[in-house]
Design a binder for these strands. Structure first.
Length: 244
DNA sequence: AAGGATGTTGCCTG
DNA sequence: TCAGGCAACATCCT
């Protein structure tokens, strides 16, 4: 469920609850963090960075990572054990099967927003610089590197590589500079397309290559677990070898 | 209807 | 020593 765009949706839903300035009435759940810290704390803001959802208080921030199976419900409950429940006057946030971490101090000291593909502050030039420093890395691994493209996940990886006609086996350093630039641009563009389609519930119908048997050109789609990350790659060797 | 996946961490091994 | 393997998490889709 959760690549960067899905976390934007989560953040927007939280922001719609208008809880900024309200105090935590109670905190429960089977998370290992100290729940006592949360009680009585005044919510400052909801933020996000890549796949991280951030609940910011005065002196610390709760970081939620949904990993592969995480889920959440606002103002309703699931049957399964809750990992973290935050109750405010008139609203309740429930998180399940997720990673919960407490980050001390000012959130600005923990994150560089320019690394988040979905951020207004996304820094494409910085991404280009990072890619330049790892020429032997496969592009399929580079796109999943959260230190370069925070928020990009496996679906985005596959769709971006198809759209820019780059084979996932390519080494970063073998791409012509214009192609690298296009790759970075498309990572951002497709992430926002993903967001729009996810909101419309039409994400899957827009997949060109991910989980497909045939690409839009009717070529065979290959499936392989590539690179250090060994995540599923779907690709058409006929469409994706163009380094012009 | 069993098997795998939109993800990451951390332990174990060689 | 450190990179790779792999389990864990527990749900939903095919």
């Amino acid at each position: 469920m959760p690549e960067g765009p899905s976390i934007i949706i989560l953040r927007e839903l939280a922001q719609e609850l208008k809880l900024e300035g309200k105090k935590v009435i109670s905190a429960e759940g089977n998370t290992k963090i100290d729940l006592e810290r949360l009680k009585g704390q005044k919510l400052v803001a909801f933020k996000s960075w890549g796949k991280h959802f951030l609940i910011c208080f005065q002196d610390f921030t709760i970081r939620i990572h949904l990993l592969m199976f995480g889920s959440y419900r606002f103002n309703e409950r699931k049957d399964s054990p809750v990992r973290l429940r935050l109750s405010f006057k008139g609203a309740e946030l429930n998180f399940y099967t997720c990673s919960v971490k407490l980050l001390e101090g000012n959130i600005e000291d923990h994150y560089n927003w320019g690394g988040d593909i979905m951020s207004d502050e996304w820094d494409a030039k910085a991404a280009a610089k990072k890619l330049k420093s790892i020429p032997d890395t496969l592009v399929c691994d580079a796109l999943l590197d959260q230190d370069i493209f925070a928020g990009v996940g496996n679906i985005i990886k596959n769709e971006v590589l198809y759209r820019v006609a780059v084979d996932p086996h390519s080494k970063v350093g073998d791409l012509p500079p214009a192609k690298t630039k296009q790759l970075i641009k498309e990572a951002q563009q497709y992430s926002f397309d993903f967001l729009k389609w996810k909101k419309e519930n039409t994400l899957k119908s827009h997949w060109l290559i991910h989980t497909k048997k045939k690409c839009p050109e009717e070529h065979t789609v290959h499936k392989a677990y590539l690179g250090n990350t060994k995540r599923r790659s779907f690709f058409s060797t006929k469409c994706q070898n163009l380094y012009e």
